[in-house]
Amino acid sequence: MSLDKSTVDQRPDTGFRLPVHWLGVIPFLLFVLLFLILPTMRIVIGAFQTPDGTFTLNNIIGLFTPTILASYWISIKISFTSALLGCAIGFGMAAAVILGGLPQWIRGPLLTFSGVASNFAGVPLAFAFLATLGPAGFITIFLRTQVGVDLRLMGFNLISFWGLTITYLFFQIPLMILVITPALDGLKREWKEAASVLGATNAQYWRYVAFPILSPSMLGTFALLFANAFGAVATAIALTGSSINIAPILLFAQIRGDVLGDPNLGYALAFGMIVITGFANAIYIWLRARSERWLR
């Protein structure tokens, strides 16, 4: 999304003109206002209102009950872990293909597959993992009958922190590969050569040159993956029914049937989710702007 100024003719302003050219973006702005901004504002404002419309902080304070805090906390833990592992594994795979001296033809199919897998989220992804690691999944049965390892007895359950994390990795790793590949391509050969001419070892090159250049985009992608996992509702619901208490599932149940018994507390729950994903994305945007300086 780099700015490209060369194609736009910046014509000099020819005196005063009625601002009719603004009319061209009115339909778009109207759409965004009605179906993105206002609905979100309604939630944000509702989080600070009592049912009869006066200002209150009680909804926000109401979030600090054990159930709701626990649901946020497990959501944050799953999002954090799956983002961390997604970054590490995705980076490993991308680096292996781009810098590791593997045949060039692997690159194209890997990127295409990453495009598919990063979009293969939601309900079908949950089915795929149930058929693999679920109680009747083929790995579970294979391990039990052929190897003699019972995952259940070992305490593994797909409907758990680790189960969800492993499932989320299926769309987290490919997203990391898609985002980090351009950054790895941006590592110029000359930098490596310059470093080794000056006597740097491979480890020193990574420690003092490549890693500082890559770290903004890696941290930024981490934030993107975090937000990506935090908002994932469909995968979690299809995988667990509603037997695991994570924030998006709680909000889903709240919208469906007011399980918290307080509509305005529901607004506050949604507001909390916006704050967390918004925070993560702000970090992403800020860090990406920093890293783009090097990737020209």
């Binding site: 609905p39 509702v233 998006p248 889903f252 989710m273 994903t277």
Partner: peptide, 23 residues
């Protein structure tokens, strides 16, 4: 405009639809 178009990646879909239902 570009910033606005990126907002749906920031605001979870479940929050947007919650807003629709109320609005």
């Amino acid at each position: 405009i570009e910033f606005i178009t990126l907002l749906p990646l920031v605001i979870p879909a479940i929050v947007i639809v919650f807003g629709y239902i109320r609005l």
